[in-house]
Design a protein around this nucleic acid. Structure first.
Lengths: 145, 145
DNA sequence: GCAGATTGATTGGCATGCCAATTAAAAGGA
DNA sequence: TCCTTTTAATTGGCATGCCAATCAATCTGC
């Protein structure tokens, strides 16, 4: 538990550091990266790819848009949707940016043996599986819709 | 990376759930628990035990104090310090509260073999070690005071 | 075709978390 | 002793993240 908290904290510190030296926070970089991978997409899809709540992503897109790295456009086929896409500046920035996979963590992982690594990956994957199953149960228990 | 994010997210969801059903968020419960373990202590010490920034803990203590679960008192020996301590209500609440070690995670961990568990613990511990070492280096590199 | 349900984005409210700056108190040095 | 530095707590500003509520657009059933 404590280790997890420390890792998360180290990730957040890294995000601050990137922000101070590059002008973009971790989540902002991450969103930019997803847009680079998947091309222009609806805000809802971006949120889904990031496993975040849409209302969270609205704020991130707002800030990226204020920096002229992305633009919102109307989707002609479904006017409820907002197509978020990279600007030219966004693409350039993305090319120069550090990979959003959080440098320090990557460094830490690289220094582990591949056997250790795959064991860690398996264990974490299993944890996620169990915790998300629990979550579904809990949701069902509290509000069965 | 993705697994870590999901685990953290599951923890936050659990915190929301506890809040909805118990009236206290994860960090609030955590602070209460530390006070239960260590007795009355300075805000700074509480922050150190939680590995959080003092300014963060000010807010948590504010909210706990608004709920009459803790009180701030002046330290007669050092008037800069604020002694935070549990109220009677705080102690009662703490006895009834779920353990702050995040139920779903515990459940997930319990279902793993002890061999898997200790391997996971070792791996995470190693990651923390490496990431925190990196952090020191980075701080030194960016601002060598 | 039209009323009612659903869906996508947004807003407002709130809790965490950080940092930088401020204030008050204590410690240290000349 | 007095002045400077350090230390503890707080404040204000900001970014994430959630949820609940709202608004507009789309879809469905009758």
């Amino acid at each position: 538990m404590n280790h997890l908290r420390r890792i998360v904290q180290a990730l957040e510190l890294y995000s601050k550091e990137v922000e101070a030296n590059f002008g973009l926070t971790g989540p902002q970089l991450w969103a930019l990266w997803e847009l680079g991978q998947g091309g222009p997409m609806a805000l809802k899809e971006l949120a889904a790819r990031m496993h975040l709540h849409p209302s969270t992503v609205v704020g991130v897109v707002d800030r990226l848009s204020a920096k002229n790295l992305v633009v919102r456009a109307e989707d002609p086929l479904d006017r409820r949707r907002v197509r978020v896409s990279l600007t030219a500046k966004g693409k350039t920035t993305l090319r120069k940016a550090p990979h959003p996979a959080q440098g320090r963590l990557v460094h830490g992982l690289r220094s582990m043996s591949s056997r250790q690594l795959s064991s860690l990956h398996r264990s974490l994957g299993r944890l996620v599986q169990i915790m998300e199953a629990d979550d579904l149960e809990a949701r069902f228990f509290f509000s069965p819709e």
